[in-house]
C-alpha cells in the first residue's frame, strides 16, 4: 500500500528543510503533515509510513500527532472543506443556521462530502473571529466573516464551490 502514496519532489525537499529548521526533528512532524495535506487534501495512513522513513521517527509518534490536531484530515474531504464556527459567539449570531443553510444548499449532512467530491461541511470550534460572527474558514484560507446564508453561498460560488 505504501507504494501508492508519494509526495512531490518539492514536498520532500520542504520536509528535509523543516528537519533542520528546529531544535528537534520531531518539530518537523506538524509542518510535514500540513505539507502532505496541502498536496493530497488529507493525510492517508500510507503518508505516516512515508513520513516515518523520511523523518526517521517512529510511525506511532507521527500518528499520535496526526490524530491529536483537528486541522489534519484523517479521511478524504472535498475540494472545498467548509468549516463553520458554531462556538458560542457564532452560535448566538446564526452560525448553526448558516451551517444548516449550507448543508441544504449542497445537499450534504454535517461531516459529509458532496457526491461530486467538491464540498465537505463541518462545524468547528471557535476560530477567533467572534466580532465578525457568524464566520467560517474554507480549507486553510483567509476567514470569511460577517456571513449570512446568502452571502456565504455567493462567496463560495465565486470560489468555484
Amino acid at each position: 500500500m505504501a507504494s501508492t502514496f508519494s509526495m512531490s519532489a518539492e514536498g520532500l525537499a520542504f520536509i528535509k528543510k523543516e528537519l533542520t529548521r528546529y531544535e528537534t526533528p520531531y518539530s518537523a512532524i506538524i509542518p510535514s503533515l500540513f505539507r502532505v495535506q496541502a498536496e493530497h487534501g488529507w493525510v492517508p495512513p500510507e503518508a505516516v509510513v512515508l513520513l516515518g522513513k523520511t523523518l526517521n521517527l517512529p510511525e506511532a509518534h507521527i500518528n499520535e500527532v496526526l490524530y491529536f490536531y483537528t486541522m489534519f484530515n484523517t479521511k478524504p474531504v472535498g475540494k472545498f472543506h467548509i468549516q463553520v464556527c458554531t462556538n458560542i459567539s457564532c452560535a448566538m449570531n446564526g452560525g448553526r443556521e448558516l451551517t444548516q443553510a449550507l448543508c441544504k444548499h449542497y445537499g450534504v449532512e454535517v461531516g459529509q462530502t458532496s457526491a461530486d467530491g467538491k464540498v465537505t461541511i463541518n462545524k468547528v470550534e471557535c476560530l477567533g473571529s467572534c466580532d465578525t460572527a457568524p464566520m467560517m474558514q474554507v480549507n486553510a484560507d483567509s476567514y470569511l466573516e460577517n456571513l449570512t446564508p446568502e452571502s456565504a453561498i455567493k462567496k463560495l460560488k465565486e470560489m468555484g464551490a
Binding site: 517512529p58 506511532a60 500518528n63 499520535e64 496526526l66
Partner: peptide, 8 residues
C-alpha cells in the same frame, strides 16, 4: 515505539 495513544 509500536504503540501510541491516538485522538484525544
Amino acid at each position: 515505539n509500536e504503540l501510541g495513544i491516538f485522538n484525544r
